[in-house]
């Protein structure tokens, strides 16, 4: 089993709050080029269950201004795919929670798909989230390679995704489904309303084989609680990046504590 699957089954043992998974997204190379490993260590220390490491891209289509800016700054700081792998070389000596790389397909295509997957396995990456790698292409060309290196590919589902397609995605997934909270790019949130809660309930009631983890628009304890009332967990990205921008790494422990407090 892979660390993501282990973590998810471990969470299954707990009822209530303790059973809810908190995942954090941050952009590698932000705010400083060499912050990556220290941020990972602090997130684990403060009780985060899983981390998505953003591989910065010049043209992040699905991201709002906060993650766009952090990506641009990370690239300006000199972050590259190769440097990220160098930084992560010994990460498994100090960090044991599941690690996922989230990025766009083009930089990975340039690195070489198989070479990238191999490197992920070497440094201890457990999964990939590539929003612009579509289901059909994945199944046809990449599924076997990902499997060979024990990498879990995570697909997105949105409020507009049809039930049929959700079932197809569920079949193709073997970790969790990333439930995008609203029809929106990242970082757009005024909190959740009835529509979103109905949507979470609707997908939750489909009895899928993969657990649901909600992302986009979760920024504080209230939205975390709303997002996870019907699902297994939630991912926070833009709100965490904003914390790093404002308080630097010293803000991490307070931020994580504030999410878990309710």
């Amino acid at each position: 089993m892979n660390r993501i699957q282990n973590k998810l089954s471990e969470k299954k043992q707990h009822a209530g709050k303790a059973g809810k998974l908190l995942s954090i997204y941050f952009t590698a190379g932000y705010p400083k080029l060499d912050d990556t490993v220290e941020i990972l260590q602090q997130l684990e220390k403060n009780g985060v269950d899983m981390v998505e490491i953003g591989l910065p891209f010049s043209d992040p289509l699905a991201d709002g201004p906060t993650i766009q800016e952090s990506s641009q700054l990370a690239l300006k700081n000199g972050m590259t795919t190769e440097i990220l792998f160098q930084q992560l070389k010994d990460v498994r000596k100090t960090v044991s929670i599941p690690l996922i790389i989230m990025g766009y397909f083009n930089p990975i295509l340039q690195y070489g798909i198989e070479g990238f997957c191999k490197k992920c396995a070497e440094v201890g990456i457990d999964g990939l989230i590539l929003p612009d790698l579509p289901l059909s292409e994945y199944k046809e060309h990449y599924h076997e390679i990902f499997k060979k290196y024990n990498l879990i590919n995570v697909f997105l589902v949105t409020p507009q995704t049809s039930d049929d397609r959700i079932r197809q995605i569920d079949t193709a997934s073997d970790g969790f489904i990333y439930l995008v909270s609203s029809s929106s790019v990242t970082g757009n949130s005024d909190g959740f309303d009835e529509n979103q809660e109905n949507y979470f309930s609707r997908v939750a009631s489909m009895q899928l084989k993969n657990p649901l983890i909600v992302g986009f628009g979760i920024k504080d304890a209230t939205t975390f609680k709303q997002a996870t009332s019907k699902t297994k967990g939630a991912i926070i990205g833009s709100a965490f990046i904003k914390t790093l921008a404002r308080d630097g790494k010293s803000g991490i422990s307070n931020f994580i504590a504030s999410i878990r407090e309710v």
Binding site: F57, S58, D59, L61, L75, T80, T81, E82, Y104, F105, N106, P107, I108, L109, Q110, Y111, D132
Partner: peptide, 22 residues
């Protein structure tokens, strides 16, 4: 250009060795 993905299409595009679009 080299083969890559831009605006949803696999095509030739100008990019850095690291796959950032120039």
């Amino acid at each position: 250009g080299k083969v890559g993905i831009i605006h949803g299409s696999k095509t030739l595009l100008m990019q850095t060795a690291d796959g950032q679009i120039t």
